[in-house]
Deep mutational scan, measured.
Amino acid sequence: MASQGTKRSYEQMETDGERQNATEIRASVGKMIGGIGRFYIQMCTELKLSDYEGRLIQNSLTIERMVLSAFDERRNKYLEEHPSAGKDPKKTGGPIYRRVNGKWMRELILYDKEEIRRIWRQANNGDDATAGLTHMMIWHSNLNDATYQRTRALVRTGMDPRMCSLMQGSTLPRRSGAAGAAVKGVGTMVMELVRMIKRGINDRNFWRGENGRKTRIAYERMCNILKGKFQTAAQKAMMDQVRESRNPGNAEFEDLTFLARSALILRGSVAHKSCLPACVYGPAVASGYDFEREGYSLVGIDPFRLLQNSQVYSLIRPNENPAHKSQLVWMACHSAAFEDLRVLSFIKGTKVLPRGKLSTRGVQIASNENMETMESSTLELRSRYWAIRTRSGGNTNQQRASAGQISIQPTFSVQRNLPFDRTTIMAAFNGNTEGRTSDMRTEIIRMMESARPEDVSFQGRGVFELSDEKAASPIVPSFDMSNEGSYFFGDNAEEYDN
């Protein structure tokens, strides 16, 4: 783990906690998980779902989305002020799938948001429990990260689609708070800032007046979040320049895209947490497990152990491969979309394939898809080993990566060399080191050039047997250095459309 220093740990961010010791953190995270579980059980009762239907990941996603929508204050306010045809701002819903006479049927349900809020609060001892809501947002974000390569979004903001390893959390809503900021990748933060800068260039009043003052505060806050992700002084200094700019424009845009590229080699610290679907927490609570009393951590053995003992089902389209669908969801559960496939294969105990080789589309089923041909199958979400999630980018030494994705962002704290394609990355730096950030740029390029592919990161860190909950005997895996390590390699994943 990167030293926490003055930073709060993510469990504290996750639970809005002030400084807590490890036991208190485990208890408050457990409380959050228990609340999600209780809410899910109650919703299944309301909807009269069978046990099997309640364990269907598509039903879980609909129920999670309903509660997130019920608590989305800004959108609710907007919907009330701008009524649109056929949208009731006070209601929320989605597809629920039921097994009827041996076939899967889709039923569109509609609930009062007020009623959903009441059920959620009741499951969370009367609190709004925003930490639990954020947790579900991060699960949705991790699922998107594993399912889609955001080529269009990258290109629109002047970045290269091969930089997708920097895009963790790119679909997280803005209201996801400190826990959300911690899991956002460098590219995601750059993209958010670039969008602001572009608006400022096109709209003279963007930075002016009372609204402009708020915009400015948001801009500086985002700059500080991004600065905190960088691990070298030169990158941090460049972020200070971007933040202090009187009138952010093209120079800042250039600096930010430069920094994003540099992060492929001088990786930023991005938190990883295993956020599971509500249909995993519900049955665990129903079986009598007391998360608050037992304590829970999002970055240790607990999620692995929970998945070892969970039964989750998914709808499967006619030509999809259930094992591939399982891999997709497994990666999402562990926030591992940008991790090295060699490491993932070792931990999972079966070969993890790149996205383009998977015969599976996303987990969600569109409303126009034919239910007649839908089957369902068990998702295999178990693992051979477990490993500690990392909050750091690993040290800054790398190795060759593949054509589709030119770097990785480690999820697990496991000893290995970190793949990246130096030639491709360095070719993108057209040696432009003039301007006010020239000395920093020169320094950053120097550090990137001296990074050695064969150097090892996370020295001495290994994986653990599932029986080793105290992480007492690390097993340090050895990897084939020459092997392909990137998930979005030469990829044809669908595009994420909101």
Rank of each mutant, 00 (worst) to 15 (best):
G462Y: 01
G462K: 03
Q405K: 12
Q364A: 12
A146Q: 14
F479V: 07
Y289T: 12
R195A: 02
T151G: 03
R118G: 12
T151Q: 07
D497R: 00
L154C: 09
R208Y: 11
K273F: 05
A427Q: 07
K31V: 08
I201L: 15
D88S: 15
I316G: 07
C223Y: 10
P419E: 07
P173L: 03
M32S: 07
G268D: 02
F206M: 13
I225H: 08
L344P: 04
I225R: 01
G288I: 05
E64G: 10
M448C: 08
N101S: 13
R74N: 11
R452Y: 14
G94I: 04
R118F: 02
R355I: 11
H82I: 03
D468S: 10
Q364D: 08
V363G: 10
T171E: 08
G54D: 04
R267T: 08
H324F: 02
Y487V: 02
W104H: 09
A70K: 06
L166N: 08
D302K: 03
L358M: 15
N76W: 05
H272Q: 13
A332H: 00
E469A: 12
L266D: 04
G362N: 05
N368W: 02
Y52V: 10
R361Q: 02
W330C: 09
Y385K: 07
G93E: 12
R436H: 03
E244W: 02
F412D: 04
R99M: 08
I225Y: 05
L341F: 03
R65E: 02
N498I: 15
R317S: 11
L256W: 14
T232G: 04
E320F: 05
E454A: 08
A2E: 11
R441A: 11
S376C: 15
S486N: 08
N395Y: 03
E292H: 14
M159I: 15
A181K: 05
N432H: 12
A472V: 07
V280I: 15
A153D: 10
S274R: 04
M159A: 06
V190L: 05
Y385D: 12
M105Q: 11
E443S: 07
Y10V: 05
A332W: 00
D160P: 03
S367Q: 12
N247Y: 07
R382V: 04
N224D: 13
L298W: 09
